[in-house]
Design a protein around this nucleic acid. Sequence first.
DNA 1: CAAATATAATAGTAATACTATCATACGTAG
DNA 2: CTACGTATGATAGTATTACTATTATATTTG
Lengths: 226, 226
Amino acid sequence: MEYLLRDLKVVINDKIYLKDPESSTLGKKIVEYSILLINDIGFEGFTFKKLGEQIGSNESSIYRYFENKHKLLLYLASWYWGWLEYQLVFMTNSISNPTEKLKKTIEIITQTVKEDSSFSHINEVLLHKIVINEYSKSYLTKEVDKENKEGYFLIYKRLVTRIKDMIINVNPGYKYPSSLSSTVMEGALHQYFLKDHFSSLTDCDKDSSPTAYFVDLVFNSINNNN
Amino acid sequence: MEYLLRDLKVVINDKIYLKDPESSTLGKKIVEYSILLINDIGFEGFTFKKLGEQIGSNESSIYRYFENKHKLLLYLASWYWGWLEYQLVFMTNSISNPTEKLKKTIEIITQTVKEDSSFSHINEVLLHKIVINEYSKSYLTKEVDKENKEGYFLIYKRLVTRIKDMIINVNPGYKYPSSLSSTVMEGALHQYFLKDHFSSLTDCDKDSSPTAYFVDLVFNSINNNN
DNA sequence: CAAATATAATAGTAATACTATCATACGTAG
DNA sequence: CTACGTATGATAGTATTACTATTATATTTG
């Protein structure tokens, strides 16, 4: 796994950035420390000025990489979903049994994230937390339709489509494959959030994982032909 | 129904506001027009200054009712959830069969909203849209734990708990009643959002409602004892 | 070594998110 | 009918945000 990914780059829609942050030391630093800083103070409190102070760089230099912090969030999220997609594709590629394949996929999507040494400047564990806490804000905007047309949510949509297709492969008669797939993708983030902040609203805790819940949910839904 | 609610007031945690907006004409105008304006320009673009211009009032007067726009959003959301809870309680009160009761509840939670003449200054249809587009932003903050302790999310949590209890009443052996309940509450908003902006990620469209999907999801989940 | 490119430093602007103060209008208790 | 308290309005002011523009200084590369 680590081998396979070692020289890969998560490919992100180049309209999201002004200059590819992977192309320079400063760019990588921006990505690396924005993850730390957003985690620390939250997306609302996060500014390019504060990030500049953290990395000893000027605000104006950061603006040469990203138009604004919203675009940076889109970048981080796209990176996360692209990284997850790699995991998913590699780890399920060899599975031919549709049920097994779907089960493994749900596991990967809903699991807690472990650090991945393949991308040294990106802390995937913290990035997962950012996605849990901030991802919704990247699309709950007045610009969502325009930005969707520009392809900013492509990787996320591709992931939902992949799961949808696997659901159909298990049961072509199931009536809501897209909705179920999007429910798992969004619901996984939500259950992690509830676990941390509204524990009475979830059954997920140290003894029970979101994965167990979603595997149960999905297979009960699609195995019931009614 | 309209009869029963005519003289009711949705009771909202009084720490959310500085001065009860229901207590004056200006207060009601703030609520009424904030719904229109947030719908129009989105929560990010919304400011008290703009709202003041809309209602011919001064910015500073609005600040006497709400500390900031975040608190106003909490107020609007609480109002919406409280209003939904009334609907739910009144419309399911007489149902004794647990399955029927749960089914009716899911219908009420996941349905499109129709205008309710009981509260003349509040447009429930637009308020539902605001909840779909903005509610997540009210809790995806660094202050969520503090604000949760202050009781700002109480009505929402009570609703999740109600559905959870009904799920348990149908099948006490089901392992994830809280998670399923929160999935329905959150997922309903999400499916409506997808329908409007990412139609390929949902099966909900003019021919298929979120309600049908969630009724199917819930009953397949809890009726399968495995 | 010169030229191109990247980054830093500085300054400036409009808008946001308030706070404070004072004026005025309005409603009602005596 | 008036004085008094409260609600609202008008104005001013501040720190911060979210940028843009310009110029200076490194650094890289041809």
